[in-house]
Amino acid sequence: MPKTLIIGYGNSLRRDDGLGIAAAERLMEIFAEQDGIEVVAATQLTPELADKIKNFTEVVFIDCSVEGEPGEIAMNEISARPDIIPRLEHSISPAYIINLTKKLYNTNPHAIVFSLTGKEFGLGESLSEKVSNQLGNLIEGIRKYIEGLYQ
C-alpha cells in the first residue's frame, strides 16, 4: 500500500503563485478520509521537509510554473539528480528535496511534479482567469493520478 504525501506550495498573496496552496487545500478535503494520504501546504520548500518525506513512498508536488503558456498543465517525473541546487536563494526545488531525502534517510520515494503555468504575480489572492479556469482540471488530474496509485 503506497503512502502518499501531497505538497502544494507558493505564496497565496501573490496571485497565481498561490495556486499550489489553493490546490492543496482542495485536495485536503478530497482525501480527508483516506488513510495513507497526507496533504501539506507550504510557502516554500525547505530542507526540513525531508524529515517528513522520508515516511512516504509517493510524493506529489503542486507548483506554479513560469515556463510555457499561462494555463498550461504539466506533469513531470523528478529527475534522479537534483536539477537546481540553490546557491544564493532560500528556496529549493522538488528534485533537490527528494534527492536530499534519499541521501539523508536512505529511502527511495517516487515523486512527481504537477505544475500549472501562471500569468499574474502581483499582490492579491485572486488567480488570473487562465489559471483559475485550469485549477479544476489540475485538481482532477492529481486526483486521478493518486487514485491510480491505489488501484
Binding site: G124, S126, L127, V131, S132, N133, L135
Partner: peptide, 15 residues
C-alpha cells in the same frame, strides 16, 4: 465556498 466546493473563480475580478 468551502462547503460548496468552490475552488476557483472563473470570472474576472472587478477589484
Amino acid at each position: 465556498a468551502k462547503v460548496l466546493g468552490v475552488t476557483s473563480i472563473r470570472f474576472p475580478h472587478l477589484i
